[in-house]
Computed example of a mutant assay.
Amino acid sequence: MENGSLFFNFNLTMFVNIGSYRYPAFVFCLLLFAMIVSANLVIILVISKQRTLHEPMYFFIVCLSINSLYGSAGFFPRFLMDLLSNTHLITHSACYTQIYVIYTYASFELTILSIMAYDRYIAVCHPLHYHSKMTSKTVCKLAAFAWICPSFSVATCLYLTIRLPLCGNKIVKVFCAIWNIAKLSCVSTVINNIVGLLVATTTVFLPLAYVLYTYLRILLVCRKSSAEFKGKVLQTCLPHTVSFVNYCITAFCDIALSRINVEKLNPFVAILLSLEFVVIPPILNPLVYGLKLPEIRRHIVRMLPWSKTTI
């Protein structure tokens, strides 16, 4: 076997040769990228400009939008270049940088959604104590926790991956991923697997369990409440539920894709499953919050140049 030091680049092998169709595909993905950026910027601008929206729930929505911009910036520029290229080689440094951005984006998304679940739990189950518990200081601490902890956990996993000697350079994916690189290792990856399991438990399964717990408590409270109260809870909790379920499905597809033999799948199906994870949440989140939350929707409509009426 060749030593990993002989490989100066990784080869992303999931790209399919679509000939002249790559130009329409490039235009479509570029428009999608522009739509993601525009939609999330609108959410950020509306919430930051309107004092009535300077509340914890809306602050966390801004965090989601910022994270969507961050993750999209780590994926789309390189992906758009690969669509027009005949070769799909990526340097080790660029690959590891992309891994860090995409994995921290994924971790940030889950921790922010978990904190949003906590915010909704306090608002519904302890409404009289909401403002005393969700102070500006508490919100800042929760936001810092959502960004800092995943940064260190992903950095640890990435460091262990970078240290592995590699006996190949083919990554069966359209973007770099830790597990795909670990499979190229010339040595045992037991330590990587153990650390990866610990990180997955703390950054994925614990937040997932907590979100399920908070919504169980919310459902128990709603069961004993009036129809009007249930309607208000549904209005504020539904967008978060949609975002959370959507994220879990797309993340599961990506994890499953990295664990199966992708070569047995239809290449176009494999690419679509791989893209779900980095495309659907960034475009769906601003649409869900912008359309479902009346306060945000009202201010967005006011921003439209042809709008002359107040909703």
Rank of each mutant, 00 (worst) to 15 (best):
T52F: 11
F76I: 09
T104S: 11
L83D: 07
L83A: 12
F8E: 14
A106M: 11
Y21E: 02
A34C: 13
M35N: 10
C63G: 11
S65W: 00
L69V: 01
A94D: 12
F79N: 00
T97Q: 11
A25Q: 13
I112D: 10
F7Q: 02
I47T: 08
F33Q: 04
L12W: 07
A94Q: 11
H54P: 07
A34Q: 13
H88N: 06
D82I: 09
S132H: 15
I43A: 05
S107M: 00
P77Q: 09
A94N: 11
F75G: 01
F76R: 01
R120G: 10
I90W: 04
P127V: 01
R78V: 11
K133E: 15
F60Q: 08
Y58M: 05
C125P: 07
F33V: 00
F108S: 03
T111R: 08
K133L: 12
V46L: 04
N86E: 04
C29P: 02
Y70H: 05
E55V: 13
R51N: 13
Y23P: 00
I102S: 06
A73Q: 06
M116D: 10
V16N: 05
S114A: 06
I90T: 09
I102D: 06
S93W: 03
F15V: 00
S68M: 04
L80R: 03
H129P: 01
I66Y: 06
M57D: 11
H129G: 10
Y103R: 04
F26W: 10
L12M: 15
Q98W: 03
N67C: 06
L41E: 01
F76Q: 07
A117S: 13
A123F: 05
Y118F: 12
V42D: 11
V101N: 09
M14D: 13
N40F: 13
N40W: 00
T97S: 09
L128K: 13
F75N: 08
